[in-house]
Amino acid sequence: MLISGLWIIVTSSLLAISTGLLGCLLMLRRSAMLGDAISHSVLPGIVMAYLLTGQKSSIALFVGAIILGVGVSLMIEFIQKRFSVQNDAAIGLSFTFLFAVGVILISIFAQDIDLDQDCVIYGELAYIPLDLWTTPTGLNLGPRAFWILLALAIINISFVGLAYKELQVSIFDPLFAQATGLHPQVWHYVQVVLVSLTVVAAFEVVGAILVIAFLVTPAATAYLISHRLWSFLGLSCLWGITASIGGYLLAWWSGGTIAGAIALIAGIQFLIVLIISKIAKSKA
């Protein structure tokens, strides 16, 4: 129990780092709900990939999901710019449309498809230690989810670490960035691809609700008390990691779902920090 608990906490923390970083960037771009949009919009991509290839191999479905994930981001932007619709409205109408397309595709062509709703929405962190990655020689390398989320965390940390100044200036002042010859749009699309990649890979492991909670809540909590971009990014990761630990302990103690408990703790963190920062401000 102790070892498997550790795997769950570590895996969840790795996800918290990826989503913590990306969540900050999304929040600064005022599109915090993009992760939500992507996680719903990948459904038709998964169904179409299944219909085209006729197999449930995870690679094909993954590619289908990524294409739709990037697709919905482009669609949102197109609707927003071309028809001057507000960002939140564009997000709402894009992902509900695509999700509906996915549901219709399933009901017409793929009624036999085995989609475990419970698993997709809530995920099941408790199974992480059971799905092990073993080499052909039989060597046990630990949970498969751990390796996937470790790779994602490394990709996201490298992205934010290496392109820190480009991201900072592109998000803060896109006109100035463009005038200096940077391409804010390119950085934006790289980020969108990473959000799609992270959301798709993660929701198979932890479920859509926790991914969305992780993309929004720790960043929102960090934003309350951050005056610098680097501290904003760092605190956001830290809140996600502590929520992972606290959530696991809460679930262990109460016997409830781990993903739900983590999301709950993240929400409580936000409330506490909000109250403390309000009190501190009123005293200052």
Binding site: H227, R228, L229
Partner: peptide, 23 residues
């Protein structure tokens, strides 16, 4: 050098005076 309109950016962005000038 180009100085955009002041209203074109979000001044709640987490950055110090020094960091903006460094841009």
């Amino acid at each position: 050098s180009y100085v955009p309109q002041r209203e074109s950016v979000d001044w709640d962005f987490p950055a110090s005076v020094k960091e903006v000038v460094l841009m």
